[in-house]
Design a protein around this nucleic acid. Structure first.
Lengths: 346, 346
DNA sequence: TTGAAAGCGATACCAT
DNA sequence: ATGGTATCGCTTTCAA
């Protein structure tokens, strides 16, 4: 059987007018029944529902929102860094769930850290008249977001701060979390500690490095590598660091892919039990590796929930000043971060 | 600064009419310019673009599709099992990328293996007039999908087969892949092998079990556990199996969460080097564990791409008979599946 | 080449 | 309580 656009008389093309005619009522009455407006005689309502069923009527949300006074589409859009990243997908899941409770759908796309892709996405989403936007911004001075704000679409920046007044934000305590983890390494005797981070354009990358530097000011003993954005790049850089005359006794990573890359290099060199490693952002199976990977864990579900709440408040008419929500991180000791410096070993 | 709906005169509420008036041209001309229809005098077109820029005009894709002859919304919808699952998010990513190339957006939602949630999602998506649907069906006789087909929205089922004529499908060779892996265990001397699988309502769960049974017919030596759908459940079941008088010498898992649960139990019992484990579906870091986890790997990106292709062909007017695309799996030996049976050990 | 006008499917006002 | 009708923002004839 072929899959055609119009294979049966039912479905496509059946409008409220058709339903009204078949039920022998006015167009407005059908609209009331479909929208569950009270004040329609029960028997009429039943007749309408029957006609709708017979004809295979399907409500057109598109036309509905066009005519509606509030112009709502009951859709919010989500611009992530990469849907396939576990952090992003946990965020998406939390937001989608929160939205579903209100009967709101979620559109999403990946910017891949590319400002022009981000711009395209924001443009497409506003063209589709999303009621609101939740964005993981690619940059601090974000053009795409500025455009959306001018257009008037409520907007929440999540995971990263942005230099735009009046934008609600949700972030984690990147600096404090990283500093606390670094302090633990310091207490365990580490003095030669390498920091591997993401691209400096990303706000979180700056914050985390700052937290690290609070404990280990950058110097010859504390090499800093930035601009790492894939497992392979981090793995390669870690191999280089291990091959240097005075290799670090510990690594701090600013991102989960980097953490995995470093760990991969350590395992290849057979050093995972001798060199400490702490990563920012938890990842699945970190606890099943031996030794387990200690991390500064974020709570992406919580982040998403707070972002959704902020956005929904705006959708509900909140016109107050911008709010900034900071979600705490949590250090999870699994072993790799608890390896002491050689000097401190018995 | 407050975040209002209408904080500047620009943006919201600016229609083509406004642009037309400011540019001193007709409404139709603006429409032509915006849609890039050739045949407008260059100077007029420039005037229109300028007016649009000045007023902060944003095209309304909603109204556009309503009036357009083909009624296209340039949106396809995706019903996944759980966006947060790596398999699902890889699928989503591949489909979103393929769609983006054609200027198509992707709506998505998670059914959580719940038929009524699936139904809601399909309903919402068709109400939003998605041009097409890609669904990971929760059941074989899927009501939600039947409804969508009657409505006439092109539909592709991915990952799982469905008892509905005329529906395009993309799956992997579940049975063959599992049988091949089981055969390897048999060759390595294993005779007491446990199979842990997902809920029997899921088509893939049946297929994979069938593949296992092709090599190890179900009997006392080959216990089968079904209905496992979380890491915890699998872990618990694995502990039980290990505590039995004659524990299996190998495990075969029908799903990635189950694989992880079994592995967790093995590590807790200190048996990960003595009892073999092969899982269906690869997962991140499977190679970093010691021993690495051998898997029957699917290629979710490929699955998504094929599904998108099938759907786009329908959108392009293909009315041919339903097509079924089968993507091959690949066994990846990492160690856990290569542990020989004790009887076969020197 | 350009513009006026009809109408996509639904909502909301205003009569009845 | 119910129905007629103007209208949402846009595309698409059809005339000029």
């Amino acid at each position: 059987m072929a899959q055609g656009r119009r294979q049966t008389g039912a479905g496509r093309g059946v409008t409220m007018r058709d339903v009204a005619d078949r039920a022998g009522v006015g167009l407005a009455t059908v609209s009331r029944v479909v929208n569950g407006v009270s004040g329609v005689a029960p028997e009429l309502a039943e007749k309408v529902r029957e006609a709708a069923r017979d004809l295979g009527y399907r409500h057109d949300a598109t036309a509905s929102s066009l005519r509606r006074a509030d112009r709502r589409t009951d859709t919010v859009a989500l611009v992530l860094e990469d849907v396939a990243n576990p952090f992003s997908s946990a965020l998406q899941r939390a937001i989608t769930d929160a939205a579903a409770e209100r009967g709101i759908m979620v559109l999403s796309g990946s910017s891949d850290e590319n400002p022009s892709r981000e711009r395209d996405l924001v443009e497409t989403f506003t063209a589709r008249r999303a009621d609101g936007l939740i964005v993981v911004p690619t940059g601090r001075a974000d053009d795409a977001l500025r455009a959306a704000r001018i257009f008037g679409t409520p907007l929440v920046a999540v995971d990263r701060m942005v230099d735009l007044e009046g934008v609600d934000t949700v972030t984690v305590d990147n600096r404090e979390g990283t500093a606390a983890a670094a302090a633990r390494l310091h207490a365990a005797g580490h003095r030669r500690v390498a920091y591997f981070g993401d691209q400096p354009t990303i706000w979180t990358a700056d914050e985390r490095l700052a937290g690290f530097s609070d404990i280990f000011p950058v110097g010859p003993a504390t090499p800093v590598r930035r601009g790492l954005s894939s497992v392979q790049a981090a793995e390669h850089a870690a191999h280089e660091a291990l091959a240097s005359p005075e290799p670090p006794t510990a690594f701090v990573s600013g991102q989960n892919l980097i953490t995995i890359g470093i760990r991969r290099a350590l395992q290849e060199a057979g050093l995972e039990h001798r060199i400490a490693l702490v990563g920012f952002d938890d990842f699945p199976l970190a606890d099943l590796l031996t030794p387990g990977v200690s991390v500064i864990a974020q709570d992406p579900a919580r982040l998403g929930l707070e972002a959704a709440r902020l956005l929904f408040a705006r959708l509900d008419g909140d016109e107050g000043p911008a709010r900034h929500c900071v979600v705490p991180t949590r250090y999870i000791a699994r072993g790799s971060g608890e390896i002491p410096a050689p000097s401190a070993r018995p």
